[in-house]
């Protein structure tokens, strides 16, 4: 497994980044879901892979069997899966509500917090804003 999982993770990362670079919020959320899976796998792989010996202690003993899988990344990944789900669920609801309120899932159209032309000190940009508005027939 010395390169299969790293390559697989690379594919996952590349796909998720590509999805997240879209202006469509739905795609961004899908990308986020892939990315969280990829990161979990990175943590898991960094802890080294051990086939089929889970970190369990048999009844009567005090130590796990020889060659047991590394329990630490497992604990971390477990936590990360759940947190990732929480984040994703929230992002989904946020996307949905944004669509309800704004009527679009295009992030370039979501400019209420950071309007495009709000620089009254700058004549140039003001002129540009006026022109922009005129082109859209608002002036």
């Amino acid at each position: 497994m010395d390169f299969v999982l790293p390559v697989l993770i690379g594919v996952l990362v590349a796909c998720s980044i590509y999805l997240m670079l879209s202006r469509n919020l739905v795609r961004v959320v899908l990308g986020l879901s892939l990315l969280s899976n990829a990161v979990n796998l990175i943590i898991f792989t960094s802890g080294r892979l051990t086939r089929a010996i889970p970190p369990l202690v048999a009844e009567g003993g005090t130590l796990p069997p020889e060659g047991y899988a590394n329990p630490l990344p497992q604990a971390l990944v477990l936590t990360a899966i759940v947190i990732g789900f929480g984040l994703l669920a929230f992002a989904l609801v946020l996307t949905y509500r944004a669509y309800q309120e704004l009527g679009t899932v295009d992030t370039t159209a979501m400019r209420h917090a950071e309007p495009q032309f709000d620089e009254p000190y700058d004549d140039l940009s003001e002129a540009r804003a006026m022109r922009h508005a005129a082109e859209r027939g608002n002036v």
Binding site: T50, A52, A69
Partner: peptide, 8 residues
């Protein structure tokens, strides 16, 4: 499952 993490 394959790599010894049934809980995960």
């Amino acid at each position: 499952v394959f790599f010894g993490a049934p809980d995960v």
